[in-house]
Each structure stands twice: as C-alpha cells, then as structure tokens.
C-alpha cells in the first residue's frame, strides 16, 4: 500500500492509461468480430433476396455461369464439407487421443521433450505443401489401393485434413489429461489399478470434456481449411455419393469463384452467403468447444 501512495498522481495517470489501452485492445477484438458478422450479413442478404432461401437451402445444383439456367444451391458443397471433415475426424481423433495419452502418461520425459515439438511442428506445415503432398503422394496411393483411375477425391482430402487437425487434437487432449489432479491418479494406483487401467478408467473419463473439446477444435480447423482441399479433392460440383468421389467443399468453392466474379452481382452475393454459412458452422463449433473446456476447468477445480 505504501509503495502505491508514494508513486503519486503521475503514476496513477500512467496506470490508468495502460488500463485503458488494454481495455480498448480487448474491445477492439470484439468490434472486429461484430464488424465481420455485420459485413457478412450485409453482403449475403441480397443473395437470399435474389436467389430465394428455398433454392439456396434445398437445391443440390450450383452452376452460376450456366448458359441454360443459373442455379445456386449449397447442399452439395455443405455435404462435401461435412463428409470430408467427418472423415478427417474419424482418422485423427483416435490417433490424436492415443498420442496425447502416450505423451502424458507413457512416454519418458526425454522422449516427450522430443516428440512434443515435432507434433507442434506438424502444425507449421503450410497448407499448400500439404495439398501438394495430396496431389503427388496420397492421391496416386489411393488410386492404386482402391484401383481407381485417379485419387482426387474426398478420402484424399480427409487424410490430409486429419494430418492437419492432429496437432490441435494432440495438444489440447494432452493439456486436459495433464490437468487431471494427481490425487485421482494416486487414489487409483493405491486401490491396486495398474497404470493402463488408471489411464483408461480414471484419467481419460476425468479429462473427457477437454478431449471432446479438442475434437471440436480440430473439426473447426478442418472445416475452414481451403488450399489443401482445393488441391486434393478434385472440385467436382456433383453431390457426393461416396468417399471415392471428387467433391467440392464450401471453402474451395469460394476460393475458386471469388477471384473472377463481377462485383455486386448475384453470384458475388451468393459467395458471401456461403461464407456466412461457413462462419456460422465454425462459430458454433468453437463456441461449444469453449463451453465444454470451461466446464471441465470448473469440475476439476
């Protein structure tokens, strides 16, 4: 208390200024988010007016430059996005949780010190590079394994996105496994359970919500990824009928078409409508992941 008094008016002023500075930085982030939402809404509303909500939401045909009849249905792309994402999660979630368990419970400290940075390095690979791997390595491999003529399909996208979502899943799962109080583990071991039983029956259930949150954040990463799927999935507009079919995701479609679209045309607004859909999906996924993580924190405290 004395030291605060000593500082005098000038110091108070400075403290106040710093306080304000941080406050405005925080508020600015919120303002930017609201601004983006407003812009997306503002630019996509004309699309719904010009196309009609019904066509946009129920048609599977997207062909804005068709000489026969332009149509703007988002269903095929939504289905493709969901399919590629779920495929990626089916691959990366079990793998990610296994790696996280290994790192938190099994690995020797030295091994952990080497493996963890490597996992984090995985997140640093640019998506173009991953896409390139998809074209030159994963694609031909899929083609050979399934006896197809080419490997530019949903499975290729899923495999690549699984790789890209792994670091998120691993690091958040591991964090929540580490957050389980030592007393839980000690109690379990004292009751005669071996380390494996402790991990499976005590630690993972206790960290379950954090692990689920890691799944959702990994999913958010996969849904928003653009370049990789653009390069690896073939971008056919048809409604997906299987993982060995070429698909076009929402992100890929926006990336392909936004560069050439005449500004302020129906097509332009429709692309922003797709952006709005994408934003809503990732927003809710991230929000629920946050809620789950927060709940776990409270429970373990």
């Amino acid at each position: 208390m004395r030291s605060v008094k000593k500082k005098g008016i000038l110091a108070d002023l400075r403290e106040g200024l710093i306080h304000r500075l941080f406050q405005t930085s925080g508020l600015m982030v919120i303002a930017i988010l609201l601004g983006i939402i407003a812009l997306l809404l503002y630019t996509s509303v004309p699309a719904f007016r010009e196309i009609g909500l019904r066509e946009f939401l129920t048609s599977t045909r997207w062909d804005p430059t068709s000489p026969e009849k332009p149509e703007y249905g988002f269903l095929s792309m939504l289905a493709s996005t969901i399919m590629v994402t779920i495929g990626a999660m089916v691959i990366s979630f079990p793998l990610g949780v296994a790696v996280a368990s290994y790192l938190s419970d099994v690995a020797a400290p030295k091994v952990r010190e080497i493996v963890k940075p490597i996992v984090e390095l995985l997140a640093a690979i640019p998506s173009v590079v991953v896409g390139f791997i998809g074209i030159t390595l994963v694609g031909p491999l899929i083609a050979r394994v399934f006896n197809l003529s080419h490997g530019l399909n949903a499975l290729n996208g899923s495999l690549l996105l699984a790789i890209m979502a792994l670091p998120t899943i691993i690091s958040i799962s591991e964090d929540s496994l580490n957050a389980v109080p030592v007393s839980y583990v000690e109690a379990s071991l004292a009751l005669g359970a071996n380390p494996w039983e402790t991990l499976i029956k005590v630690k993972i259930p206790a960290a379950a919500s954090g692990i689920i949150a890691s799944l959702m954040l990994g999913m958010g990463r996969a849904i928003g990824e653009t370049m990789t799927v653009l390069m690896a999935t073939g971008n056919a507009r048809a409604f997906p009928s299987g993982f060995l079919q070429s698909v076009r995701t929402l992100t890929a479609n926006i990336a392909i078409e936004l560069g050439e679209v005449p500004y302020y045309s129906t097509h332009y607004y429709a692309l922003f409508a797709l952006g709005l859909v994408l934003f809503l999906i990732t927003f809710f996924i991230n929000l629920s992941a946050d809620v789950i993580l927060e709940k776990q924190k409270r429970k373990l405290q």
Binding site: R61, D63, S66, P67, E68, S76, H150, L152, G234, N235, A236, R237, A238, F239, S246, R248, I256
Partner: peptide, 8 residues
Amino acid sequence: DYSPEVKE
C-alpha cells in the same frame, strides 16, 4: 451445362 462430375 458441363457435367457436375468435371474435376475443375
């Protein structure tokens, strides 16, 4: 129209 199966 082009076939929707065309890989772009």
